[in-house]
């Protein structure tokens, strides 16, 4: 299967199989005008099968979101058809306005204009807790 290569844009590569749609949704890629290609189940030497997302054009990418969903994926920045930067990801220490707290007793359920912040408490278990009420992210 061929997909046009990108001249200026972003390639999110080595996404764990099946995670591309989650990244697409969290990054709100449905709301941008640029061309976006999602490739699912592409062959990978490293992980067997992988997903890839290609975004044509400039886009302010929230790396924390991708790091949170799949820290093993890589982000490649393409300019003039050349790879100019390869970003390695990791689980972010802090997530701002990515998740919402599900605890009905949390202040974030009533306070207006509040930032929803989660902090990484245990990287092995990928455990995030709400900054305010300390409930675990689901």
């Amino acid at each position: 299967m061929t997909i046009d290569s990108i001249v200026n844009g972003i390639v999110i590569d080595h996404i764990a199989q099946g995670k591309a749609m989650e990244i697409y949704s969290y990054l709100s890629l449905d709301k941008i005008d640029s061309q976006v290609a999602i490739i699912k189940n592409a062959p990978s030497k490293k992980i067997g099968k992988k997903d890839i997302i290609k975004i044509d054009g400039e886009f302010a990418l929230n790396l924390d979101i991708i790091g949170f969903i799949d820290p093993e994926s890589t982000v490649n920045i393409i300019r003039d058809g050349k790879l100019v930067e390869k970003k390695k990801l990791q689980l972010p220490e802090k997530l701002t306005d990515v998740l919402k707290c599900k605890n009905p007793r949390c202040i974030t359920t009533t306070e207006q204009d509040i930032k929803h912040i989660f902090l990484l408490k245990n990287s092995e278990k990928r455990e995030y807790r709400c900054l305010y009420c300390e409930s675990r992210a689901e």
């Binding site: 605890n103 007793r105 305010y132 009420c133």
Partner: peptide, 24 residues
């Protein structure tokens, strides 16, 4: 509401003492 005093610390120049926030 749990975490309300943490919100308070973000908007206060004076010390905040949490005198109880829900079951937290």
């Amino acid at each position: 509401k749990e975490g309300a005093p943490t919100v308070a610390t973000m908007h206060s120049d004076v010390p905040i003492i949490n005198a109880g926030d829900g079951g937290h």
